[in-house]
Design a protein around this nucleic acid. Structure first.
Lengths: 197, 197
DNA sequence: CACGATACGGAGCTAAGATTCCGTTTGTAG
DNA sequence: CTACAAACGGAATCTTAGCTCCGTATCGTG
């Protein structure tokens, strides 16, 4: 970000690593409202040092989210390898959710992903959209999913599932949410104990 | 809240009304992050006056949410009049969502309703739970809903649908979200254009 | 080893927003 | 019509959290 990684002085590189690791942990645990000095303390570093590496809190946040989105796109790519069209779709939903699980900061980012215009994330978002669209098309063609299901539905549904993780209404379990979503509240004719991935 | 309504001086009563109406409007439009002086200005009143009536911002917020929750419980009660068991359930979901629509402050309150321990709301929450539980039981008995559906699922699902309103991922429509939830992403066998309420 | 460049630390500055304080105004009982 | 309690207004205060500044410490090259 600031300068090239390899031209960084050794102590600087080390500290940068510590800061990123500390903020990864704290953002995950408490979300974006963690304070900069908490991050600095957790990283065993002065506040000034944090600001040398990341000019603003937002920049730090952005760097974190960009990282996570990267993983996210990779997960999507690997989900495409699943042969069964229906399982591929279920898999991408469940694995995406798993990727977000336990990271409050990323949960918020996920839910608000459409309104946040974070620099450098557009790329990953587009890649993700492409892959998911492909998986959906396959599932539709195979007739295992309602034929009007589109990528926007995926985004909407992920937003909803993520909200369950973040807000935990009545100690709810997001896997249950996914299950309801896939098979419908009104589906009386449940298949014989189909397990979601 | 402060003193008995009828022992309030006439101007005080009038101002209190104005403050409540202004904050109802502003919380709905911008959510909880509206500032106290904006509310005061909108009400045509000094900040001091706002604080005479509501000791803290939180107290004001609470009063607003309590009001809305009241409406909410009433809506639930009237949904119970719907004769068809399935329609009753759909109705309560859709009408609840409609009640939240267009009120950002309430949307947030809805999503986080389980973690916020707002004084004086427990009562309405309990009433709501009772009614919804009854409606669900009826639908289950009639065999029009998966028989393991419970009140906690309702809360979870409402949280998800509300998140769609609040975060608007990809310009999503919450009615679509409800539709997916009711009939399932995997339901290929859609009924002949069943309209949600 | 020495010295300049690079990086560090953290006290203190600043802005934003909630809340208080108190002199002034207004309603109303007598 | 008075008098005084009840209300009002809004400048001033307090608090929190992001961010800057600059004297000090550390790296790494010659």
């Amino acid at each position: 970000m600031a300068t090239d990684q390899r031209t960084l002085r050794s102590d600087a590189r080390r500290n940068r690593e510590r800061i990123m690791s500390a903020s990864r942990e704290l953002f995950a645990r408490f979300g974006p409202q963690v304070q900069m000095d908490e991050i600095a303390a957790h990283a065993g570093v002065g506040i000034g040092t944090v600001y040398r590496h990341f000019p603003t809190k937002e920049a730090l946040l952005t760097a974190m989210v960009r990282d996570r989105f990267q993983e996210f796109a990779e997960i999507a790519a690997s989900a495409e390898d699943v042969l069964d069209p229906r399982e591929a779709l279920e898999s991408i939903i469940v694995r995406s959710a798993e990727a977000v699980e336990g990271d409050a900061g990323f949960q918020l980012a996920m839910m608000g992903s459409s309104q946040l215009e974070w620099e450098g994330i557009e790329e990953q978002k587009a890649a993700l959209a492409e892959i998911v669209t492909r998986i959906i098309a396959r599932a539709c063609a195979a007739g295992v999913v309602r034929d009007d299901f589109v990528f926007e539905d995926f985004a909407m549904v992920m937003c909803g599932v993520t909200s369950t993780m973040y807000f935990k209404p009545a100690e709810a379990d997001w896997r249950r949410h996914v299950e309801l979503l896939l098979h419908g509240v009104c589906s009386v004719t449940r298949e014989p104990e189909r397990q979601v991935v």
